[in-house]
């Protein structure tokens, strides 16, 4: 197979694997009845995904990025606006870079 064909085969397989992960969760859940226990699991898992992404990023980032993240969380708590929170986080990070 030519290098070009191999590359496209790889991209196609990547797309297939990723699409498989996108549809698998809902398909699996057709097999379960949503009891209050399953509901508690799903709700906790939802917030856990977000917290895990943020915690993982914080552990791998510096003071600048983490201050920005903290400010975004604080603005969200105060205003309930995710756009406002993201804008505030960006402003902190940009200002930090310009002033440093």
């Amino acid at each position: 197979m030519s290098a070009e064909a191999t590359a496209y085969l790889t991209i196609f397989l990547m797309a297939a694997v990723t699409y498989g992960t996108r549809i698998a969760g809902a398909e699996l859940m057709t097999l379960f009845r949503i009891t209050s226990r399953v509901d508690a699991f799903l709700k906790s898992m939802a917030i856990s995904v977000m917290v895990a992404i943020v915690a993982s990023a914080i552990a791998q980032s510096g003071f600048r990025e983490n201050t920005a993240t903290l400010v975004a969380a604080a603005v969200m708590a105060a205003t309930r606006s995710s756009i406002g929170a993201v804008t505030a986080g960006m402003l902190v990070a940009a200002a930090w870079t310009w002033l440093a």
């Binding site: 993201v86 505030a88 960006m90």
Partner: peptide, 18 residues
């Protein structure tokens, strides 16, 4: 330098708080 690198983590932090 425009703060774009923190957009996604700020978004997820905001959603978790929300």
């Amino acid at each position: 330098r425009f703060g774009i690198d923190v957009v996604m983590v700020s978004f997820f932090a905001a959603i978790a708080v929300g």
